[in-house]
Design a protein around this nucleic acid. Structure first.
Length: 389
DNA sequence: GGCACCGGGCTCTGCCATAGGT
DNA sequence: ACCTATGGCAGAGCCCGGTGCC
């Protein structure tokens, strides 16, 4: 208490006498209101003139002991370091009480320094709102560790509350909301109006494509692909147009595609979609496929559009090195789902086991690990008696 | 039991730009 | 002038197993 009043006195002095070293961002009233809660953050030094105020040194010490990467944090949000008051200790205590480790706390502040400007009340309220969606504190900590920005970027708890109400009113189930918060936490820090925009956009799209139940369509798209809510409508629109024009689809087929395998494609960055598709087309045409075959292939296995130029080409080349023909590949497009390293390992093992990939079924390459191992074991058992794989 | 077909699970942050507030 | 809140962008896969048919 003595410390606190001493601090207040010093602050007053600094308010009156400070020159040059400080940037005052708060009214005196607002500032003083904050003092009793922040004994660690404010200290006075009547001698300080040109040099950094002492509370800044204290803050840096605090942050360093918390394992914060100061350089990184300063680069990310320099403004935080010019503030008179920050609440790093309070934040630490709060997060510890929710089960976060010291390491995670340090990492969170390093990556999103503005976190230390939030008050306990605001954090607590926000946490409770997140807990309405998530079953445990630990799950929230996991999200924060992945994406601190999503939790801390906005301080508008009322907007968050309304967002949750809005998304529920759209018909998203608690389970779906949970998936949304886990997979696209940014949706909950973007504004309510931005979320509404996307929902309205999806409704309009479904109506223009002749969907009979737009609310159903919206629910379905979001539950299938939660991250659509963190894309811009411009991006989603461009991808829908791409699908429509690249494959010359009528409304009904386009709708089927968007509701099914195309749902994920809507997230792709626009240049990326076109670039990857162009690459696939060029590569397959150069290997003797017809335009029609290429279209059919891509349409039947849209996930290949996710593959970067290098990944796609490397996989094709790698398969063809084992004398697998391009027609085998496009008939078994699933093999392109498999990672390059798995492909290589399996091809080596299969060849070693005497399996001729150029004439046999290459679907083996894309089996699940369990099924593949069983298959290989059996093959080896047949050819070499009993042998463990 | 073996196979083909298919849907779905995990998972998407970190940065920059800028309007608007103080 | 400076900071905060927010929008928006680039980047770019892999794996599992249920089910129904033979």
């Amino acid at each position: 208490m003595i410390m606190a009043s001493r601090n207040i006195w010093c602050v007053r002095r600094n308010f009156v006498f400070s020159s040059g070293g400080w940037t005052l961002q708060y009214s005196a009233e607002r500032f003083l209101k904050l003092i009793p809660f922040r004994p660690f953050s404010v200290k006075c030094d009547s001698d300080s003139k040109e040099r950094t105020p002492l509370e800044n040194e204290d803050r840096l010490k605090n942050l360093l002991t918390m394992g914060v990467d100061i350089d990184l944090a300063r680069r990310r949000q320099p403004g935080v370091f010019n503030r008179v008051v920050t609440n790093e200790q309070e934040l630490k205590i709060f997060l510890l009480s929710k089960g976060a480790s010291d390491r995670v706390i340090g990492s969170i502040i390093s990556r999103y320094p503005r976190a230390i400007t939030r008050t306990h009340e605001s954090l607590s309220r926000r946490w409770d709102l997140w807990r309405k969606i998530m079953a445990s504190d630990l799950e929230i900590i996991n999200i924060l560790e992945r994406s601190p920005e999503s939790f801390f970027r906005s301080n508008n708890n009322l907007d968050l509350e309304n967002k949750i109400k809005f998304l529920s009113s759209v018909g998203l189930t608690p389970k779906c909301l949970c998936r949304l918060l886990t997979r696209a936490p940014r949706a909950f820090s973007n504004s309510l109006s931005l979320n509404k925009q996307m929902v309205e956009f999806l409704q309009k799209t479904s109506m223009s494509l002749g969907h009979k139940n737009p609310p159903d369509f919206v629910r379905m798209i979001i539950s299938k692909n939660p991250s659509i809510l963190i894309q811009s409508t411009k991006r989603v629109q461009a991808n829908i147009e791409f699908l429509q024009s690249a494959f010359n689809l009528d409304k009904e087929d386009l709708l089927l595609l968007i509701c099914g395998p195309g749902a994920k494609i809507l997230d792709l960055s626009n240049e990326c979609t076109k670039k990857n598709y162009t690459n696939i087309k060029e590569k397959l045409l150069s290997l003797g496929c017809t335009e029609e075959e290429v279209q059919k292939f891509v349409l039947s296995s849209l996930s290949v559009v996710f593959l970067s130029e290098k990944k796609f080409n490397d996989k094709i080349d790698c398969l063809m090195e084992e004398k697998i023909s391009i027609s085998q590949i496009i008939k078994n497009a699933r093999v392109l789902d498999v990672s390059l390293s798995t492909l290589k390992t399996r091809m080596k093992e299969l060849v070693h086991a005497g399996y001729d990939l150029s004439t046999s079924n290459i679907a083996l390459l894309s089996l699940s690990q369990k099924r593949y191992k069983a298959k290989l074991r059996k093959m080896l058992g047949e050819s070499q008696g009993t042998l463990d794989v």
